[in-house]
């Protein structure tokens, strides 16, 4: 792998006494889509939330090991978590637009970073919505409330909102699990387009989705990283028995 974006070394996570992630080590390549798969409770979402330090919000969590993003350990004391999250965006399982207009949702990130210039904001909103492939749908109704949109539209708006702070990395936590098949395929298409400019890490329950969208796949089980490799390799001839069992649907 030529271009490593994220290097993880022996990362473990504890919820109080319980060890939820066990010595995870992996490399996530730049400008590729990496899928994290595994049965419920295997730690894939927890791991994803380590990458933008979302787990900081839970007081009982303790993390050991290293999470190097472009060579910098994001858990270092000198690192500002706010800057981490600007660089590493996140799209959540349940679409969570703010109860504001479409425009204000996208402009939220730039605004909290201190951008006040209306022309620049307009520009960012347009570019972000275009990137999320919803500009044509939304351009005439930017002042409408985001809460009136369908689930799929809301989720794509959330992606646009994430793009507006121009991150390098986008984390997606089962972004299509609550959507219908048509909306799901739109999200997948979007993921495919975005990987040119972004490094994407996507957690999914859906085997086909992982196979369709990702370049690399990591299989988690019981808090451990069992296997990671090129997606077609993982899905055609996995090295570990557990991976094969999971992929072929024998458990999970």
């Amino acid at each position: 792998m030529r271009d490593i974006k994220i290097q993880v070394n022996d990362l473990s996570l504890y919820y109080g006494e319980k060890k939820a992630l066990k010595e995870i080590s992996m490399q996530i390549p730049a400008n590729k889509v990496t899928a994290l798969i595994g049965p419920s409770g295997c730690g894939k979402s927890t791991f994803l939330r380590c990458i933008n330090r979302m787990n900081d919000l839970i007081p009982s969590v303790k993390i050991t090991g290293e999470m190097l993003v472009e060579g910098v350990d994001i858990y270092d004391k000198n690192v500002d978590v706010v800057n981490i999250r600007k660089k590493i965006g996140m799209v959540f399982q349940k679409s969570n637009p703010f109860p504001k207009s479409i425009y204000e949702n996208v402009a939220y990130g730039p605004r909290i970073n201190g951008l006040k210039d209306k022309t620049q904001l307009d520009e960012i909103v347009e570019t972000s919505l275009r990137q999320a492939a919803i500009w044509d749908e939304f351009k005439d109704r930017l002042d409408d409330s985001a809460l009136g949109l369908s689930g799929g539209q809301q989720q794509r708006l959330c992606i646009a909102r994430t793009l507006a702070v121009s991150p390098d990395i986008i984390l997606m936590d089962e972004p299509a699990s609550a959507l219908d098949p048509i909306s799901t395929s739109k999200i997948e298409e979007l993921v495919h387009q975005l990987k040119e400019n972004y490094t994407i890490i996507i957690v999914t329950h859906n085997m086909q989705q992982a196979a369709r969208t990702s370049d690399h796949t990591a299989f988690f089980y019981m808090g451990e990283l069992i296997e990671m490799g090129k997606t077609n390799a993982i899905f055609t001839k996995p090295e570990k028995k557990q991976t094969e069992d999971y992929i072929t649907g024998r458990f999970g």
Binding site: M54, K94, P97, R161
Partner: peptide
């Protein structure tokens, strides 16, 4: 105010106070 909205704001790089001011308080 649901946790999801707070997380959305924090994930965009907002500080806690910005999140309270912009999302929690208006709601």
């Amino acid at each position: 105010i649901p946790r999801e909205l707070r997380e959305a704001s924090l994930a965009l790089g907002a500080t806690k106070w910005q999140t309270i001011k912009q999302v929690v308080f208006p709601g």
